[in-house]
Design a protein around this nucleic acid. Sequence first.
DNA 1: TCTTGACTTAAACCATGGTTTAAGTTGTAT
DNA 2: ATACAACTTAAACCATGGTTTAAGTCAAGA
Lengths: 125, 125
Amino acid sequence: MKYYSISEASAKFNIPESTLRYYEKKGLLPQIKRDKAGRRLFSEDQITFLGIIIYLKNTHMPISDIKQYVDWVVEGDNTIELRLRMFKNHKQAVLAEISLMTESLKGIDKKITRYTKLIQERKVE
Amino acid sequence: MKYYSISEASAKFNIPESTLRYYEKKGLLPQIKRDKAGRRLFSEDQITFLGIIIYLKNTHMPISDIKQYVDWVVEGDNTIELRLRMFKNHKQAVLAEISLMTESLKGIDKKITRYTKLIQERKVE
DNA sequence: TCTTGACTTAAACCATGGTTTAAGTTGTAT
DNA sequence: ATACAACTTAAACCATGGTTTAAGTCAAGA
């Protein structure tokens, strides 16, 4: 079974090692083994799991919620409904955030149009 | 000319008064007048301007950048190119962020599908 | 006149999400 | 043997974006 060092995990996801240590300390990365020298060993499964955590981060799920999710994963299959509900709620929140950003971008686009015209007019003069 | 009190501005945009004071202190809301009692008076134009600032906030522009934009607005028309460039850059950043969120959401959706199936299978047993 | 509500200020405080530092350990190459 | 790189830890530190507090002012109504 292949294991990844923290530097490999860091490189794979382009995340600082310090952040991975921080995530482990916060409980987002449970059960990371160590080698004889005390260095972290990330299993394939844990690397995959880290990928999920990064998806959650990318969609702005707070660390406290990710922690809850991780705790449920550790707890086992009887928490699947809870996880499903959490992810469905989160999905709606993300869609709402994307909508807000998209709408706000329209307002910014109007400014871009306006500024572009102003500059054009100035050049014409 | 109509003026808005801080409570009216707060209500209009659903933003805490404390946040409006904070924004003014940070320089995002320049030239807000006061009445005899020292209370803020937001002009129509300033309310419109606040709307832009909120668009920028909604799209995660940092306060320091918004400040730069505001300073350029105050500086006058010879900064329009700078503002245009800033907004174009910002737009690209926002589109990139939306893409990242959308992509990450796909990963989360896979989990939703998986969990849904697991629950279905459990019910069938 | 007195109270009340809606403000004002400066400064302290807080949450979130890391990053940096200092001091130490280990395994490998020379 | 020794030096170096790649880790380790706990704790301090930092940036960002507000929120809260304490003490005070003012205008309007009872």
